[in-house]
Design a protein around this nucleic acid. Structure first.
Lengths: 137, 137
DNA sequence: TATAATAATTGTAACAATTACAAAAGTGTA
DNA sequence: TACACTTTTGTAATTGTTACAATTATTATA
């Protein structure tokens, strides 16, 4: 896996013929700098301070584009809001039910297998835990 | 783990001081007979045929109650709708991105561990895959 | 059994996340 | 510059879910 740098992402985007508008750049920048699995609303609210004309639709559009291009993953650990992660490497997520924080943890999702799935084509594997984080215990 | 029978569920509910109204019984019955990970809307639409006065709010209320009582699990494999599963045994879910079906598969989620989580209290473990099912390939 | 207290259900309204869509603005190329 | 094409914007619509108060049902008690 490649490190998350602008250079790598830019190359990927060029490969996939996605051109980097000002808004898209800012959203990507935000995801790289804030690897806290933000919601659309968090991304919009924070970016909107410096870009007053930014539309929430643009945030939705861009994220959908990045997800389709496999540069971003959606985390559906909670049923009421999607969260976005620019770190598409093999890892798990645990949500603290006390403070709401979603933490990354190391787990080799590739090695998860089941004989029941021999005839399936598997495209994506997600591991979600819930519990209480050390700070909240 | 106990098998999913009315008798076992009834005992569990009595233990937890949840009384079985007509509506709750019907919803439980539905979940036992339709282990297809239905949405609230599917449950409501199907039950409403025989119970014309059933309210969707009741379906929501009952499911919330059953989840809190650990008799039902929410599946958040998709970000836009919650699905419900009366089978709370250790297993994974895979969604076919072509036909939308969510299949169960055997996997020992209990054995999933990560050294990063030593200081966490872990309450729930979910494994979600996406791909293409044998029928759709 | 009658009655009071409590719990559950219903239906509507409110809410929040997301999508649809058309107009406006921006970009690249001949 | 002119034209085609892409992207953004803002609003409206849609969808899943929750809040809430009135009604109905159930349970406990005298």
């Amino acid at each position: 896996m490649n490190a998350i740098t602008f250079e790598n992402l830019e190359r990927e985007l060029k490969n996939k013929k996605i051109n980097l508008s000002h808004q898209r750049l800012k959203i990507l920048e935000y995801l790289i700098e804030n690897q806290t699995h933000p919601t659309v609303d968090q991304i919009y609210t924070d970016l909107q301070i410096d870009m007053p004309t930014l539309s929430k639709t643009t945030v939705y559009n861009t994220l959908k584009l990045l997800v389709k291009a496999d540069l971003v993953k959606v985390i559906t650990i909670e049923d009421n809001e999607a969260r976005y992660d620019i770190n598409i490497e093999n890892h798990g997520h645990i949500k603290c039910e006390s403070c709401g924080t979603i933490y990354d943890f190391n787990i080799d999702t590739d090695s998860l297998i089941s004989s029941d799935l021999e005839d399936f084509k598997i495209d994506e594997k997600s591991v979600y835990f819930k519990g209480i984080c050390p700070r909240c215990r």
